[in-house]
Each structure stands twice: as C-alpha cells, then as structure tokens.
Design a protein around this nucleic acid. Structure first.
Length: 847
RNA sequence: GCCGAAGUGGCGGAAUAGGCAGACGCGCACGACUCAAAAUCGUGUUCCCUCCGGGAAUGAGGGUUCGAUUCCCUCCUUCGGCACCA
C-alpha cells in the first residue's frame, strides 16, 4: 500500500519535470520510418520457414481512405502479424483495383482525365494507408491500370480466347438514347429507369459482346471440398449457380420452326396446355400473326423497360399476350397456343417454357387469368384433380394420368433422375428422339465487354476477311491512348479516337480495326493475387519461383458482398488457368473469411452524398493509429460489422493510455529485482497474475486464429486491469510481474504495433524489434484454475454457487451441491428426482 | 420477389460443445483529487416488485430438452447480393 502510494507521488512530480506523456503522433511516425528503412516487412522467399499468404481484397481508389477500408485491412493486418510472430514467413501485399467507372464519371463531371484522377487518388490513399502502421510489403504493390499490369490482363484474355473460352455473342445493355451510351445498372435511376445524367428513359439495346465460358466450370464450381470457405458463401455460390436436372424437349411451331424448352418436370409434358416465350425470343416475330402484332410489339416494349428482378418477382401479377401462333406438343401432338410473358427470361434456360398449369404455380396463375385449359397429369393419392375446379397447382407426388404410355407410373417429389416418373419419361424421350436428359444452370457465361474507356483494352483485332484475331503477344500491351476527348454525351472515347482503332490484321496484314470495348474490371481482380508475387516481372504474368513458394493464398479476407461475383469469377479464372497449364491446384484461395460492413452512426450506409463518411485521418490525428486500430478491432464483431460509434473510441484510447502509464511509470522496473527488493505481493497474488497472463495467451491466440478480433482486445483489457490490481498488491519487480509485462507487450504488438515497439525497445530495453519476437507459449499448468465455481440449479433455476477443487469429480460436485444450505431451502424437503451434473460445469436438481 | 445473414441492457458487444445471460467497453450516476474544470482514480449501473427476499427477460409466437441466446417450425424487422458500382 505504502509502496504504491509512493510510486504515484513520484509519477506525479516526474510528469511535470520529464515529458513521458503518451504522444502517438511523434512516436508512430518515428517507428514507421524506421520499419520502412529496415525493410522490416519485406517478404522474400525463405524455404526454411513455412509460408503464409494473407490476402485482403484490394481497394478501388475512390478518393480518400474511409473507415471501412480500415475495418477491412487492420484486423487482417493484425492477424498477419500474429502469424508472423508464430514463425510463418508472411506475405501481406496491397494494391489498387484502379480501372473502373467512377474515374469516367469524374472525367465527365470535373473535366479531369481518368488516369490523372485515379493516380492522384492512389497517391493520397497510399499515404493514408501508411499511417495505419500495417505490414504491407509495398515493394509488391500492384496497380491494375499500370501498363505492366494490364499487359498481362490482356495476355490472359488471349489465352482464354486461344483455348476456346472467349467468344462473341449478342447481349442486351441498358442504353441511353440521348447520350448515345451504355449505362451501368448503377447509372439507371428510379422505378422509371431513367439515365442518371439526362433523365431520359433508358432502353435496352442488343450489342455483340465478348463472353467467357464460365458455365463450362459450373459443376466444378459447386465443389468446395478443398477449401475452407464459410458455409454461407458456399450456399450463396451454390444457389447462384443454380443447377437443375431435367430434360430439353423440342417443340415445333406450326410453320415447322423448332422451339427448344428446358423442363425440370418432363413427367408433366402431357399436361402442357400452352407455351410461353420470352418477349425477346428470336422466334416471337415469326410466330406472331398479323392481328396480334400490335399487342405483341406493345408488350415487348413494356417488358424491355423492366429489370430482370422485377420481371421474375413471384408476387407480381403475371401478364402476357397471345401471339396468335401455335406449337405442337411432341409427346401427344396436341396443338397448343404460344404466348409471350415477361416472367420468362431470355437469359435463363432457352427463353421458352412449356406451361403445365395443373402442376406449376406460376403457370396455374397465368392459365386462370387468361382462361387457358388446365389438364392434371399427376393424380395425388386419395383425391381426384379436376382441371376446371382445382384451386391451386399440385406440385408434388402422385400417379401419372392422361399421359399415354405412362399412365399409372408413380411420381415422387424427388428432383431429377431420382424420380422414377422423370427417369422413365426422359429415357422414352431420348428413345423417340424428341428430347434428352439435360442439366440447366442459372449461372450464365461471364459478359466481359464494357463500352468504356477506363479499362484494360480487349486485345482483339477485326479484319473484314479474317474476322477476329488476337493481337500478337509480342505487341502487348495494347496501350490505352491518353489523348482522348471526353465528350459529355457520347460513346466511349476509344470509339471516337481518330486513329487508335486503326491497325493491321495479324493474319493478312491488311487494314483492320481494334476492339474498342474494354474489359470488365472483375477481370483485373481475378488474378491480382498472382501479380503481387512479382509485380514488375516482364517474362510472364508472374515469376514461377514466387508462385511455387507462395501460392495458394492461405487466408483471403474481404466483404461478403463479393460472394457470388468476384469470388466466383476468381475461382473460375484459376480453374481455366489450371487447364491451360498456367497455374496449379484446383483453387486459388484456401481459407476465406468475410467481414461485415461499417454503417454510419444513424445505421444507414456511409456515402459521400449522405455526408456521413467517417474519416480515419481525423481520428489518427486525435488519438494515434494504435488507438484507431484497436478500436476498429474492438467496436464490432468483425464478421458482422456494425454502425459506427464515435464515442466508444474514448474507451480504447483510455486503455492505450493506461497501458502507456503502467509501463512508463518511473518507478517501474522491467527487470526482475533482487530478493527483498521486489514488491510485497503474496504468493496468491502472483499465482493469480500468472494464471491470468497464460489464460490470456490462450484466449488471444485462439481468437486471432478464429478472426475474433473484438475479444482479442477485450482480453488484453482484462489482462491490463489484472496487472493494475497486481501492482496495487505489490507485484512489481517479481519474476511473475516481468513475465506479465513481457507477454503483454508481445500480445499487444499485432494490435498496436507502434506503442508495443516503443514499450518493448525503449521502455523495457529489449532487443528491436518486438515484431520479430516469437509469440508467447501458454504454460498450461499456470493457466489452470485451483478451484471452480459450480452453479447449482433447482428445476432449472440457479439457486446457489458452490466452490469445489478444480479436480473434483462428479460425485464430489453432486455432494457439494446437495450440501448447500440455500439449495436445501429451495428443495423444501422434496426428494430430488434426478440430479444432473453437466460436464463439471453445472448441477441441476430436478424435483 | 428470390438467395444469404443478423436481431441480447440506454449503446457496441460477450457467453468458442445445449449448461451461471450481460465479460470488455461506451454512456450515465455518485464519490475522491481540484479554487474550479479537464484528465485520472474508485463505486454502482438489465428491468420489475412487497428490495437481507423474489419475479421477468436474449425480435414475436410455438416446439424438443432436466436445462435453449444456442437446435427445430411459423412470423416480423434490419442488412448484404441479384450478373455494367467495386
């Protein structure tokens, strides 16, 4: 007691004479400069150590670094540091996904070249990132809009083309007829679907565009055996791919044109009473009779104004119009009317369906609305369906009726060939040559063409005679011209450039034109993890030696919003490269973890236009990077995200300052004091301290491993509180105390690297750098509790707690519980019917 | 609409094998220090009641279990994605 009081007095007087106050601004800059000068975070191949490739999704250079960037980068940085201290050779690179739409928006709005805007943003963000004190290896930085990068994006396109994985096909785009330009979904505003710039109603336009055959890998993309990805992402990807088994069947129009349909229910073919085609189906015009043409054209126009999401909505009233045309059902030669309806999409299946109203809910609603016939072909057990009177479709099992040769065949509710009715019908269809077994996917091939300037050029050349050919590889990269004009309204500047697109045919040398579309930026981000391996390598997309050492990525972190787009694209890309012999293994990223989103304080999304963006720079200036880092890790569950809370940071700042105060107390000794000169703490205090220290090592290690960063920080806070108590009790100077300090600073190092370095190297005089120290080991013996407190319930309600020795067995625990005064009172003399001792954690007495 | 996730004190969150609900922190209240304030330190803080004791409570309702924040079903709300934002 006296010793502590004295210490506090000393501290007080000293604080006025010597400046030992916590000053992160100076200290953090000092260490950042030293670490950089020493290349402390440079990752080089080292065969003697296990490697760990920690990858975090690279940002788009949108302007300033916001708090969301910190949230996505700092916890993975802390974990990478933890892995490094555990002995791994860690690669933790950073770069910029620098092509994209916003640069063009800025170009048009502020009359600044997209390149200038992008690179200025990169400069600013790079500086801001350096203030984080993260262990990014900047020598491996990759920027996707650098020619040395996109040269290889182009090269990959050519490889995909050469292997038959890139092809051209017509596809719809949203088009502003006034600005004469393609619009991104984001640029189409409101339910009226108007152009964001000029307010003109958007139309759909069909353009020839480049696709990658991602669907070739659909089945393989459904396999997750080799990777440890969250179940939710696997489910999202599985549903996104949307594999369904069934049959494709050819119907014929009365004119003899074939209409292919896909159905998951070939067992209901005899119940098809009409067909529905997508309004965009190529045969619509041909089957439409003159008297229906006006209505059909009108309907097509209206359908084109809606999004697929609106068209597919199941709660929406179904609409459609009759074309006047008829098709022949190949299984029974029935003549059935052909309708068009917007709920049939050209992008799913074949763009045409057979409608079986008796057994499909949507078809049923449609048939009832338009008075089309309903013929039941699956009879449920114990009921007789009547097409005239039934109130809803019967979508489940029964026995086939009205189905010619198949009457009496049982149909189960199983999907695909497991269903005996489906199996029988499909085999019969194949025998008759009317249809065949078929698998359909919701997943579509990847449309990569963008009618834009600021993207990687598609390295293809078109010649009147020889068609499309790739630019010879020795002529890569096809550079984006800088001298482009930004017409505020109009097409991509590449198309308008006077000379750029003119070139020669690689086959005949005759005049030819370049592709003026550029690539989807997801193409750039599908392989950036490979470019980090050797960002300046010029003999290939990456250096094989680096690849062999570092790949695959061990942990990949990023937002859940990428589950079905980027994360599927990059898996597809890797598999395609594997089949071309460029990469190895089936998967690029072994472990995936997703962080949640930081919302604004009012629980809305942060956005510049709302003006509710939290700027980390201001916080760093006020509290220092260590505090911001710790708070980022502490304020929310990382995998969940949360609304920002600007007040909460005070608590973390207090914790960092308390850490500082404890270690910089002038009376503090970081060396074990000789016998008799250490504090007067008793053995129990010191044992408690050691127990807390080693329990914290265990918990913090486990939480880092599991990406549970908030409890890493709360665990450290608890330990610090315990250390303050121990010091109060006179632990200072004891071996236990010095061990506690030593371990505390090591555990702190990944969270708050600057203060940890300062305390370790300067205050404690340990060898530089704390970031090269090994992670502390748990002393299991020290972490063990002497006694445990067991709650005792009577009928499921906690009535008392009994303390038993840690090694007590179930019988002893039971006896202790029954001996409790309070428990006996609650038993009120009743005999226990059952006493449950749960895992030596709780006793429940049932009466 | 479809697919996915989440709902716990005034707030962020904890409870890591179905076993003590509320760790840690914010905020708030009271106290110490101070001429005063800030900072710091200490104590308290889910709600309710008849307050040395008891009851209720983890979005709502139901189910399984000796026991449910945790598992199952229905519903509600919020968030993410829906293929040209990245």
């Amino acid at each position: 007691m006296t010793a502590t009081n004295k210490n506090q007095t000393v501290e007080k007087t000293d604080q006025t004479s010597r400046d030992i106050s916590y000053n992160p601004r100076v200290m953090e800059k000092k260490w950042q400069a030293k670490w950089e000068a020493d290349k402390l975070y440079r990752s080089v191949i080292d065969e003697s150590r296990p490697k760990h490739y920690a990858l975090t999704m690279l940002p788009y250079p949108s302007g300033d670094l916001h708090i969301g960037h910190w949230f996505s980068m700092i916890p993975p940085d802390a974990r990478a540091r933890f892995k490094r201290m555990q002995g791994y050779n860690v690669l933790f690179p950073m770069g910029f996904d620098a092509f994209g739409l916003p640069a063009e928006g800025a170009a048009i709005k502020h009359n600044i070249h997209p390149k200038k805007w992008t690179y200025e943003n990169i400069d600013r963000m790079r500086t801001q990132m350096r203030s984080m004190g993260a262990m990014f290896d900047w020598e491996r930085e990759a920027v996707s809009s650098d020619p040395e990068y996109y040269k290889w994006t182009e090269w990959f396109f050519i490889q995909l083309f050469k292997h038959g994985l890139a092809y051209r096909k017509k596809a719809m785009v949203d088009w502003c007829p006034k600005d004469n330009t393609t619009l991104a979904r984001e640029q189409v505003k409101g339910e009226e679907r108007v152009c964001e710039r000029c307010g003109t109603p958007v139309i759909k336009k069909e353009l020839e565009q480049w696709f990658f055959k991602a669907t070739k890998y659909a089945d393989e993309l459904l396999v997750f055996d080799e990777i440890e990805w969250p179940q939710t992402v696997r489910t999202l990807q599985t549903n996104w791919i949307g594999r369904s088994e069934g049959a494709s069947v050819i119907f014929k129009t009365e004119q003899g044109d074939e209409i292919e349909i896909f159905t998951t229910r070939p067992d209901t073919l005899w119940g098809a009473t009409f067909m529905v085609m997508s309004p965009e189906h190529p045969l619509v015009e041909k089957v439409t009779t003159p008297e229906h043409k006006a209505a059909v054209d009108e309907y097509k126009l209206q359908a084109a104004r809606q999004t697929d999401i609106e068209r597919e909505a199941t709660d929406k009233e179904k609409t459609g119009v009759f074309t006047g045309g008829y098709a022949i059902n190949p299984v029974n030669n029935e003549r059935i009317p052909i309708w068009i309806a917007d709920y049939v999409l050209m992008s799913y299946g074949t763009g045409a369906i057979m409608a079986v109203p008796a057994h499909d809910e949507r078809d049923f609603a449609f048939a009832r609305k338009y008075g089309l016939p309903v013929i039941p072909v699956i009879q449920p057990e114990g009921a007789e369906l009547n097409g005239e009177t039934m109130q809803a479709a019967h979508e489940h099992e029964g026995v086939m009726i009205n189905s010619g040769p198949f009457n009496g065949t049982p149909a189960t509710s199983d999907k695909g060939m497991k269903n005996p009715a489906i199996k029988a019908v499909v085999e019969w269809l194949e025998e008759k040559g009317i249809g065949k077994r078929s698998v359909n996917y919701r997943y579509r091939d990847w449309l990569i063409s963008r009618q834009r300037y600021w993207g990687a050029p598609i390295p293809m050349v078109h010649c009147e005679i020889h068609g499309w050919n790739p630019v010879p590889e020795d002529q890569l990269p096809v550079l984006l011209p800088d001298d482009v004009e930004w017409k505020p309204t109009g097409e991509s500047p590449l198309k308008l450039h006077p000379t750029w697109k003119n070139t020669t045919c690689p086959v005949c040398g005759g005049p030819a034109v370049r592709e003026t579309d550029t690539m989807d930026t997801f193409m750039c981000s599908s392989w950036y993890h490979l470019r980090y391996l050797s960002p300046h390598y010029d003999k290939g997309p990456f250096d094989e030696a680096e690849y062999n050492y570092w790949m695959p990525v061990d942990t990949y972190t990023g937002g859940i919003e990428h589950a079905t787009m980027h994360l599927l694209y990059t898996r597809f890309f890797h598999k395609a490269l594997r089949d071309m012999g460029i990469t190895e293994g089936n998967e690029p990223m072994m472990q995936l973890r997703n962080q949640g989103m930081v919302l604004a304080e009012d629980h809305s999304k942060m956005s510049k236009s709302r003006g509710n963006v939290v700027a980390p720079d201001v916080l760093v200036e006020k509290y220092g990077a260590d505090t911001v880092r710790a708070y980022i890790m502490f304020f929310a569950r990382w995998e969940m995200g949360a609304p920002w809370d600007s007040k909460g940071i005070e608590g973390t700042a207090r914790w960092i300052r308390r850490t500082w105060t404890l270690f910089t107390d002038p009376a503090e000794r970081s060396e074990v004091q000789p016998e008799g000169q250490a504090g007067p703490a008793d053995a129990e205090t010191l044992r408690r301290l050691r127990r807390k220290v080693h329990q914290t090592v265990r918990n913090v290690s486990r939480d880092f491993e599991n990406f549970e960063f908030n409890t890493v920080v709360s665990g450290l806070m608890e330990l610090l509180n315990e250390m303050y108590k121990a010091r109060e009790a006179g632990a200072s100077g004891s071996p236990e105390w010095v061990e506690a300090q030593d371990i505390y600073v090591r555990l702190l190092a990944p969270v708050a690297p600057h203060i940890a370095e300062e305390l370790w190297t300067v205050q404690m005089g340990r060898p530089y750098s704390v970031h090269q120290q090994p992670w502390p080991e748990v002393d299991e013996e020290a972490a063990k509790e002497d006694s445990i407190e067991i709650p005792v319930q009577v009928n499921g309600k906690v009535r008392d707690r009994v303390i038993v020795p840690a090694e007590a067995n179930e019988e002893q625990i039971k006896a202790a519980a029954l001996a409790s005064e309070t428990v006996r009172r609650h038993l009120e003399g009743r005999e226990p019917r059952k006493v449950i001792v749960a895992n030596r954690r709780l006793v429940n007495i049932v009466v």
